[in-house]
Design a protein around this nucleic acid. Structure first.
Length: 920
RNA sequence: GCCCGAGUGGUGGAAUGGCAGACACAAGGGACUUAAAAUCCCUUGGCCCGAAAGGGCCGUGCGGGUUCGAAUCCCGCCUUGGGCACCA
């Protein structure tokens, strides 16, 4: 296949030019700008010509940074990077100061697993992988400020991750001010009980196969680890927790401040799971005890005919009466033996009676107390009042164990209940709230409970505190020391970082038994690291490490000031780039909806409360790119075969002559259908790759990769090349290349011998040419605003297809076109720009302005309809009045033909568009 | 089970109340060429009438509705992707 244009010379040349010229350096306010930098010509101020105009609008475009995995990138990864790069380049041309950084989320399981598999230290593999991926990313021509590159594993980075942890440890959430404050402002008896980072002994998700505990967010709904699908067990362990629940309310409410897809907001809201209700106190007079339950339907209290406790509830032993002890003990044992997964498979309800009874506070009836595993210890108080008439689960339980079902809410129709009625209705048989509709009943009974001192209005959340420690080597060490007596001492800020010790054996101790206990690898670290003396006391370091999410919680802040050794980020820079509402554009996969995005918002809010960040939210606008899918092929055994080896014959697929079946899935290693960006760049050039990824369809949508589809945009760039260049000089150049060798030293110089197309002239563009140009400018500007890259590229194609037929090619129009093309295909645009006499780079050239004069049309086509069906079209001036249009429509032969024999009932005229004659 | 999103030619998609299928891919035909590649031109949703020019009918997952007019709005269903799942 003949090469469309010499991208293999053009692309490296401009990538080198940008890098060496520091073209995409994001200058901070006050920073010295080199004399010759194109940024200076655009943004240098007359009064302070050497620094950037601090008042120019700034723009922060960010990608979710990648893991530096050993297999590198496939063409699915750059989708978002290309999108933010196009926006960055566009914003730069619009006069914004653009910050577009890139970094690596290098701690955590994948990097460590890779290191274990290859028997090398994770530091070494991480560094090699980062270097490889940087090269891959640079080859895409991203306009990143590489001087800000960082990795979460850099000591100078994780030092500040540890510093933020100390801030969390030394802070508490003050409910009266509704924000985090330094722990010193806490006046209660036990500061350790309110810290935002605390050691808690609680049932956690223990995954023996991974040798570590996991956060709730890392466990799937099947009770398996999100990474690797290993079984997970609940075990009570003493672990570091972050008090994210203190922020539950703000994490829900302040979603209103950000411009995110509704779906993502909904996912977060559902995960946080706010529900309003009441806590109600049930006395157990015989034992001088009481039980608290949480209910969202306090209006159904009069229908509570029994109570149910979680099997693990701490009061079960006291409540259980003699004759029931054996049954209860057996049932509790059976429950404990079940994994989360088994317990979630909701089969028939099980449970046993404890023998105890409690008093319903509203009517002082004595009701039996049961235990059942459909009540979870982890939500509410671990105990419920059961109202079988109005709760499906309670109904099922009552039906099975023959307990009373007492309706207390009348459905609108009033028919007798055949199943639980859970909607709103009118209270009946309910004392003081009888006759009230549900919302009022709920409010009135809550007030009554509060007045009686037996209950209060309560808000509950599904969100649990964040389990923050891992029994892994490759993570940030905690800046925490343990005294022999168990007291905790935080490492002084001045003593940070706590460096990860050099170790040869860093493998986690994995096991198959759920009863193996976590053993952090750092417990095997050298004694010199493990033991610390402070003020004569011998301390042991914390052996757990932080989870992968820690580093990604704040990297967008460190990009603002990556080399600062005094502060985690300079507050003035933070204010400049992030105020008032955070990163301007954040693009990444939807899979981080409740993990990274929730954690990062939490940290940001703490930093904000403590005065270390100005904005209340980290990410103002979020866009989720879709997945790139690709055909994947399975053989008879169901194993995936290398998609690159599959051939199609008459609609069937074969790999090495054995038949295989086709399916579509997310591109990646596991489906053996990855396509590498390098292959694409080698064959078509990265401008084509960029263009194709954007041309495939809307960014947010998942779509299948089709390598053949690249041909279309590649041909388009070939046409662009031929629009500008003289054919005979290109032929001469190609011949010279053949003689010199493709990559010979002189090859790049030979590029300069290519002349402009002879039809390119300095003549002013014609009206037709200007009309096309300005329509294209309008379309591109609108589409970039909404990130509709696919239709923007289509408009560029329309322009070129049209311009190829022109008899002259006016310089001014072509230059404007290049500026429109530049964000999408920057290399070819730069090359042609310089051929057209441009100096240095077009990156800071002003974005073309659309002149509305050229958008007005002197003639429009009007559609003529009869009863909604198109019968003819007429051409007319855009200013034609409704009357004129109506007259012309009614006189139209085709219209009359279809109206024949009918009477006109109505005529609808939409000026500039259509006339619809309604006849019958 | 509940909550979101999607469903348009052979394919990716465009059109978000006013011309369905922009722009591409693939396919077919032609020009150029010794040949190929590349390039350029033409055809390309289905069915029907016509020798042709041209014309008609149907068509945006399915069924209903609102409207002069619906791919687009509303109701019900089907398929599919994702999230949650005994959350009191």
């Amino acid at each position: 296949m003949r090469r469309q244009y010499p991208f293999h010379l053009i692309e490296p040349r401009w990538q080198r030019h940008w890098l060496q010229g520091r073209t995409f350096r994001a200058f901070d306010p006050g920073e010295q700008i080199p004399e010759t930098h194109p940024f200076r010509r655009r943004h240098g101020r007359a009064t302070a010509p050497t620094t950037a105009d601090p008042y120019a609008p700034r723009y922060y475009a960010l990608d979710m940074f990648p893991y530096p995995s050993g297999v590198g990138l496939h063409v699915g990864h750059p989708l978002g990077y290309i999108a933010t790069d196009i926006v960055s380049r566009y914003k730069r041309m619009q006069g914004h100061h653009v910050l577009h950084p890139m970094g690596f989320d290098a701690f955590g399981l994948p990097a460590e697993q890779f290191a274990i598999e290859h028997g090398v230290h994770p530091r070494a593999t991480t560094e090699a992988n980062v270097a490889n991926m940087v090269a891959q990313l640079k080859a895409l021509g991203l306009s990143c400020d590489w001087e800000r590159q960082l990795a979460t594993t850099d000591v100078h980075y994780y030092r500040w991750t540890q510093w933020i942890f100390l801030k969390l440890y030394n802070a508490w959430f003050n409910p009266s001010s509704n924000k985090a404050e330094p722990i010193e402002t806490y006046t209660g008896p036990d500061p350790d009980s309110v810290r935002l980072a605390y050691l808690g002994e609680m049932p956690v998700n223990w995954c023996p196969a991974l040798g570590t505990v996991l956060a709730n967010e890392e466990v799937t709904s099947e009770g398996l680890s999100e990474r690797g699908n290993h079984p997970v067990y609940k075990r009570p362990l003493r672990q570091w927790m972050l008090r994210i629940t203190a922020y539950a309310e703000r994490l829900v409410a302040e979603l209103d401040l950000v411009d995110w897809p509704q779906g993502i907001k909904l996912l977060q809201r559902n995960w946080i799971g706010r529900s309003e209700g009441a806590t109600v106190r049930f006395e157990i007079s015989a034992l001088k005890l009481h039980l608290e339950v949480f209910t969202t339907r306090p209006d159904t209290l009069f229908g509570a005919t029994f109570m149910v406790l979680a099997p693990e509830h701490p009061l079960v032993d006291q409540i259980t009466t003699g004759p029931q002890r054996k049954t209860v003990a057996l049932y509790r044992q059976a429950c404990a033996a079940k994994s989360d997964q088994e317990r979630q498979l909701a089969g028939e309800k099980t449970g046993v009676f404890t023998g105890g009874c409690a008093l319903n506070p509203v009517n002082h009836e004595s009701i039996p107390i049961w235990i059942a595993d459909y009540v979870m210890m982890g939500y509410g108080t671990g105990a419920i009042m059961a109202v079988p008439a109005h709760d499906e689960r309670d109904w099922e339980f009552a039906a099975k164990f023959n307990l009373e079902i007492r309706p207390v809410v009348q459905p609108p129709g009033g028919q007798p209940l055949s199943k639980a009625f859970t909607e709103d209705g009118v209270s009946i048989q309910s004392g003081l709230i009888t006759g009230l509709p549900t919302p009022e009943a709920r409010q009135k009974i809550t007030e009554w409970l509060e007045a009686q001192g037996v209950g209060k209005k309560t808000v509950h959340y599904k969100l649990r505190d964040w389990l923050f420690s891992r029994q892994r080597y490759w993570g940030e060490p905690f800046p925490i020391l343990h005294a022999p007596g168990g007291e905790i001492l935080a490492v002084e800020e001045a003593d940070l970082p706590v460096e990860l010790p050099q170790m040869d054996d860093f493998k986690p101790l994995a096991g198959n038994s759920p009863n193996t206990l976590p053993q952090p690898p750092l417990a095997r670290a050298p004694s010199s690291w493990k033991y610390v003396v402070r003020a004569g006391v011998h301390y042991t370091r914390e052996f757990n490490t932080m989870p992968q999410w820690a580093g990604s919680c704040w990297y967008y802040l460190r990009f603002l000031d990556p080399a600062n050794h005094q502060h985690y980020v300079d507050l003035d820079k933070e204010f400049y780039w992030l105020s008032p509402r955070g990163v301007d554009l954040y693009v990444g996969g939807v899979e981080h909806a409740v993990l990274h995005l929730l954690y990062a918002r939490f940290w940001h809010k703490v930093l904000h409360d403590l005065g270390y960040a100005n904005s209340p939210e980290p990410f103002r606008k979020l866009v989720n790119q879709g997945y790139i899918e690709a055909a994947a092929y399975q053989d008879e055994r169901g194993f995936y075969v290398d998609a690159g080896k599959v051939v199609e014959k008459d609609g069937n697929f074969f790999c090495d002559d054995t038949p295989v079946t086709r399916a579509y899935g997310k591109m990646g290693k596991s489906l053996k259908n990855a396509v590498s960006p390098e292959d694409m760049c080698r064959q078509y050039g990265c401008d084509s790759l960029r263009l194709y990824e954007m041309f495939m369809g809307p960014l947010q949508q998942s779509k299948p990769w089709n390598t053949a589809g690249v041909e279309g945009v590649y041909r388009f760039l070939g046409r662009v090349w031929r629009l500008f260049t003289d054919e005979s000089s290109v032929d001469a150049f190609e011949q010279k290349l053949t003689i010199l060798g493709e990559d010979a030293a002189g090859a790049e110089d030979a590029l300069r011998e290519i002349r402009l197309h002879p039809l390119i002239t300095n003549d002013p563009p014609s009206l037709v040419q200007l009309t096309l140009l300005h329509r294209t400018i309008k379309k591109l500007t609108d589409d970039l605003q909404t990130m509709s890259f696919n239709t923007a590229i289509s408009a560029l194609m329309v322009f070129v297809n049209e311009a190829m037929t022109w008899h002259n090619r006016p310089v001014s129009a072509l230059r404007e076109f290049l500026l429109l093309l530049a964000p999408f295909a920057p290399h070819i645009a730069e090359e042609l720009w310089s051929m057209m006499g441009g100096e240095t780079t077009l990156s800071y050239e002003p974005w073309p302005a659309c002149d509305p004069r050229y958008l007005v049309e002197d003639e429009v086509e009007i559609v003529l309809q009869v009863n909604g069906k198109i019968r003819d079209r007429i051409r007319t001036t855009p200013s034609a009045t409704e009357e004129e249009l109506q007259t012309r429509a009614l006189q139209n032969a085709k219209v009359q033909e279809f109206m024949a024999g009918k009477t006109i009932r109505k005529v609808i005229v939409v000026p500039g568009k259509l006339v619809n004659v309604v006849a019958g």
